[in-house]
């Protein structure tokens, strides 16, 4: 696990709120890891700033994945970033509407976002604008659903041998 560094968290928050005060929706520290939520309009310049700012240098995209909040009809993306030079981790979240799930791509900032965005598209249906090849990566090509959305039925719908009364339905 990463080293706890509360001082560094405060320092990062100060730089970010100085530069993106209106874009930051929420900031919190969960299990000593700094987590910042930004609006989707600001996400691309925000990520670019995190990478290129000389004090921050989040040069490594650890992971990226989708989220679904069915009660507020939103889809989100969470980015885990790592600054190799400062040995500091940060989590960045953003959200978009379920009806029009469009977000800008991060492939122009970290090329490693390519396959992770494809996976997020595959499972959540988030359209990453500017992605060079946004097609399904893990599921079968002819799939039409987005299986990790909460409204997707967990069980295979083509089974005929299951007796509902055995499962309390």
């Amino acid at each position: 696990m990463f080293k706890i560094n509360a001082e560094r968290n405060k320092f990062v928050v100060k730089i970010l709120s100085d530069n993106f005060s209106e874009a930051i929706v929420q900031q919190e520290v969960i299990l000593d890891m700094l987590c910042i939520t930004v609006t989707k309009e600001a996400i691309n310049p925000f990520l670019l700033f995190l990478r290129d700012n000389n004090e921050l240098k989040y040069d490594f995209l650890t992971t990226l994945c989708g989220m679904h909040y069915p009660e507020i009809d939103q889809l989100g993306v969470v980015y885990h970033l790592h600054s190799l030079t400062n040995n500091h981790y940060i989590r960045v979240k953003t959200a978009t509407e379920l009806s029009n799930p469009v977000l800008p791509t991060a492939t122009n900032i970290w090329p490693s976002a390519n396959w992770m965005e494809r996976e997020t598209f595959d499972f959540f249906g988030i359209q990453f604008q500017g992605h060079p090849n946004l097609v399904r990566i893990l599921n079968v090509d002819d799939m039409t659903a987005f299986p990790l959305r909460k409204d997707f039925p967990l069980e295979d719908q083509t089974r005929e041998d299951k007796d509902d009364s055995m499962f309390g339905r």
């Binding site: 599921n139 997707f152 295979d156």
Partner: peptide, 13 residues
């Protein structure tokens, strides 16, 4: 034979 415990979208039943 039947998909077994993997009653899910990604596994052949």
């Amino acid at each position: 034979s039947s998909g077994g415990i993997f009653d899910t979208y990604s596994v052949l039943q």
